[in-house]
């Protein structure tokens, strides 16, 4: 039943991707994107790619989050679609 856990994680991945693209508050979109990156990292661990998961967790969910928050703080927070 190892694959069933992964199946659920993939499902969460799709849900967070759709959330990130459809929510109107850009800050919420960025947070959803960080959740996406973190779930991707967990899937990578489950597939045995520990090094890639490390990078994805540290950079994809950490540094990218900081950059996005800075960019949104300097521009606008609302999206029209």
């Amino acid at each position: 039943m190892h694959w069933l856990i992964e199946f659920i994680l993939f499902f969460i991945l799709v849900v967070t991707a759709l959330t990130a693209l459809n929510v109107r508050n850009l800050l919420a979109a960025v947070v959803a994107m960080n959740v996406f990156s973190f779930m991707a990292a967990i899937i990578m661990v489950s597939l045995g790619a520990v090094d890639v998961a490390f990078v994805e967790a540290v950079a994809g969910a950490g540094v990218i989050g900081v950059y996005s928050v800075v960019a949104i703080r300097l521009t606008s927070r609302k999206s029209q679609d």
């Binding site: 693209l21 960025v30 899937i43």
Partner: peptide
């Protein structure tokens, strides 16, 4: 149509291809 959304879509595409290889 929001540029940040476009960038997020770009990131999703890249993450997907990476997971494909994994």
């Amino acid at each position: 149509q929001n540029l940040v959304k476009k960038a997020l879509g770009m990131a999703i595409v890249q993450a997907t291809v990476i997971m494909f290889w994994i």
